[in-house]
Every structure is written in structure tokens, then in C-alpha cells.
Amino acid sequence: MPAAARDLTDVVRDIGRRDLDRPTPCTDYTVRGLLNHLLYWGPSLLTAVRKEDPPPRAASEETAALVTGDWQRRLCDLVADLADALSDKKAWQGTTTMGGGELPGSMIGGMVLVEFVVHGWDLATALGSQRPWSPEAAVGAEDVLRGMAEQGRQMNVFGPAVAVPASAPALDRALALSGRDPAWQPLG
């Protein structure tokens, strides 16, 4: 988790104002939309990891406008808080709540890892960055996605799996499981 958090925050710090309207491999989002998504759901993930009551939030992600002010600092702090909370073994044990339903703590931890790795890659790729990713984080995300990708597709969270060779790097296999084409390139 610490490596995945570090990878994501490195990308977030590289995002400039001119980058916010760029398309991302996560086809429903621009860079701004994806950052808004992370800022919207991150506090709910954090309270779920900490097994606390969920925080109040805007009625919907679509109506929230969270990429304002010092959004980079807020997002980097949120990522650090999530990684720190998930360093406690208790966060991975038992159950917690998020979105009204009870879920295993290990599922929430896995969701956070996938958010860090996959959306970190989405953002970096939108910027045209070919930065290296932590191999441990990529393997962890692939493991989580092997267990949850099909359910995610049924919930319209992930697109159809993309075919990649079995010999592809773990990051490419994780991305493919999430419905992303590891070869995606920004236009222009």
C-alpha cells in the first residue's frame, strides 16, 4: 500500500491546471473528473477503513465540484491517510460499512489498492507519462482484480476485460482485468 500511495501522489503532484480537461483511459472521466472521483469517494473509503461512521458528502459525485482550492494537497493527504490507516492489520479484519452495506474490511482495503494503482495509471497515462510503477503494487492490484473484476463488470464499474498475453507485466494484466487497454495513448 505505501508504494501504491507514493506512486499515486507522485502523479497527482505532476498535474497542472492545463491538464484538467485531458481525456483519460477511464472513458467516463477527464483528468478533472477522475480527480473529483478520488476526492469524492476517498473520505468514504477512509471512514470504512477506520470503521467509523461515513462522512457527509454532496448528493452525487456528478454534482460535487471538489477540484478547487488546494485540491492537490487535499488529495495527497487523503491518499497518505488511507495508506496509513491500512497499515493497521485491524483495518483488513472483520467487517465495515460503506454505502449502506456491510463489507469485509479486506474488500475495502483491496478497493483502495485498485483505486490507487488503476486510477494512478489513468492519470499518468492521460499526462503522457510512462513512469515506472511499483511491482508490488501492480501484483497486489492484479490479485485483487482477479477476485473482484467480474463483480465490478456486473456493477458497471469495470469494462470488458482486455486481452493481454499471460507474459505481460503485472500492471498490464491488472489494467486489462479492469477493462483498460494498457496500450492506451492520449490523443495528439
Results as ranks from 00 to 15, higher is better:
69 G>F: 13
23 P>R: 10
123 L>R: 06
73 R>V: 13
74 R>L: 07
165 P>A: 15
39 L>S: 00
101 G>V: 15
40 Y>N: 05
156 N>S: 13
178 S>T: 12
105 G>R: 09
44 S>G: 14
1 M>H: 11
117 V>L: 03
132 P>C: 11
50 R>G: 02
124 A>D: 14
87 S>W: 09
129 S>H: 15
28 D>M: 11
71 W>Y: 11
63 T>D: 12
137 A>D: 02
83 A>W: 01
91 A>L: 13
13 R>A: 12
6 R>W: 10
162 V>D: 07
137 A>V: 02
44 S>Y: 11
67 V>I: 00
26 C>F: 08
150 E>M: 13
6 R>Y: 10
33 G>S: 00
179 G>T: 08
48 A>H: 03
71 W>D: 02
139 V>P: 11
131 R>S: 04
160 P>I: 02
153 R>T: 04
120 G>L: 01
185 Q>L: 10
162 V>W: 10
55 P>Y: 03
94 G>H: 10
41 W>N: 14
144 V>M: 08
148 M>P: 05
24 T>R: 06
125 T>P: 09
157 V>F: 15
99 G>T: 02
104 P>I: 00
19 D>Q: 10
52 E>H: 13
84 D>P: 01
43 P>I: 02
146 R>A: 07
94 G>K: 12
31 V>L: 04
23 P>Q: 06
143 D>E: 15
139 V>C: 14
22 R>M: 10
172 D>H: 14
55 P>W: 05
137 A>N: 06
179 G>H: 13
148 M>K: 11
113 L>N: 01
119 H>Y: 08
103 L>W: 14
38 L>A: 09
164 V>Y: 08
149 A>G: 04
160 P>V: 05
41 W>Q: 13
161 A>K: 07
129 S>E: 13
118 V>G: 07
14 D>N: 13
138 A>N: 00
163 A>P: 03
127 L>D: 00
173 R>M: 05
34 L>A: 00
92 W>Y: 11
45 L>C: 07
83 A>K: 02
65 A>D: 15
76 C>A: 13
53 D>K: 08
143 D>A: 14
93 Q>Y: 14
185 Q>I: 05
133 W>N: 07
94 G>T: 08
36 N>E: 04
96 T>M: 09
24 T>Y: 08
11 V>S: 12
52 E>M: 11
82 L>D: 02
27 T>L: 11
86 L>F: 10
109 G>H: 05
178 S>F: 15
